[in-house]
Write a protein that binds this DNA or RNA. Structure first.
Lengths: 205, 205
DNA sequence: ACCTGAACACCGTTCAAGT
DNA sequence: ACCTGAACACCGTTCAAGT
């Protein structure tokens, strides 16, 4: 994760402050210290003055955008791994990917929230979105293949993918907010929601 | 909305600062100025010193909690109205309530986000949650009656309600985030998600 | 080229003092 | 009983000055 050498850390101009800032911030998110994720605190932990990060990020939002990007990469990786583990069995892949999505959110609460908390202001061409769409596309391709194998009802696969994403996103956030109890993958409300989703995709073939 | 008389506004001790603070904050949310929703700015707009609100709210989170409560009341009202408009026709009531939920979120973006942004820290006994559960229960009762009329598949209605809530919550937030295009009630991705949800509820009777 | 430190305009929160 | 204003410990951001 942190491939900065001690040498670089000690260097006068720090070596790779940009990476150090990102790593520090990611660590804070993972440690549940996301509420203290201020530029000044990150600079402090990176052992650098509070103005230094501005040489590498135009502003705080830019750093958060970078973290969000990393989050979407990790989420995409987790979904791809779950799909690969199903070894082409689409009937298994669909629920496996759904559970992988939820697990990612529940295991990375602060990061997951951050990924969706960037006020895009309706600007779709953001830095962030290509990654978000990559995640979306994993589900989309899966549904297209599932339709071809008649595992899933034939209808606009983009719409189905949107429905899947909405269900998983909502389930993840309600769980994180403590509004679904118990809030674990494998628990009834979570599993039931996944079942209702899959039945909705299959229905009326 | 604002039932403070001019008299009261001019009174030395303001009359009802608590209500004035809440009304000012709600107005800011409705006007898309939620990003400036600071205690100091609200006090400024209410024409009062920045310390004054502390006589009525222990801290900023308490004010936000109050706003969240009002939001859940309004959402509950909107859902109940949609259900009532269906006049007992449960096949119509289900999609009507779903659309009412989405409409509320899309028409009150800042308020809707606020309602779910309070870090409960896993504390379920919060002030907020009775109202959140009241919203949940409208959907729950509806599903129970729909099961009785065989419009919806028989299974644990609490689980079905959780699935509905997750779908609607996710759909609302993805739309607000600009990740579903176009993001209007009645548009294809939104309608399709509702259809998939309803089919999932009906499936396998 | 990269970092520091003072400076500015903000916050939330507290608290003595005023009415 | 309710509000004011100074004070404190924070922010994000900028910018001249240092190395």
């Amino acid at each position: 994760m942190n491939d900065i050498t001690d040498d670089q850390k000690r260097r006068y101009h720090h070596g790779d402050l940009r990476r150090a800032v990102i790593d520090t911030a990611m660590t804070m998110l993972a440690d549940g210290e996301g509420n203290q994720l201020t530029l000044r605190e990150v600079a402090r932990r990176a052992g650098v003055s509070h103005g230094a990060p501005y040489k590498h990020f135009p502003d705080r939002a830019a750093l958060l955008g970078e973290l969000s990007l990393i989050g979407f990469e990790q989420l995409g990786g987790a979904l791809a791994a779950a799909e690969a583990a199903a070894e082409g069995n689409l009937a298994l892949a669909l629920p496996a990917v759904a559970r992988a999505y939820l697990s990612f959110g529940l295991e990375n609460p602060a990061l997951y929230r951050l990924m969706f908390s960037l006020e895009t202001g309706g600007n779709i061409d953001l830095h962030l979105n290509p990654r978000a769409f990559a995640t979306f596309e994993i589900v989309l391709r899966l549904l297209e293949r599932a339709q071809a194998e008649a595992i899933v009802r034939k209808r606009d696969a983009r719409e189905q993918a949107a429905a899947c994403w909405a269900q998983l996103h909502g389930l993840t956030l309600l769980s994180l907010d403590g509004l679904l109890i118990p809030q674990k993958v494998g628990s009834r409300p979570v599993e039931a929601s996944i079942e209702v989703l899959l039945e909705g995709l299959r229905a009326g073939q």
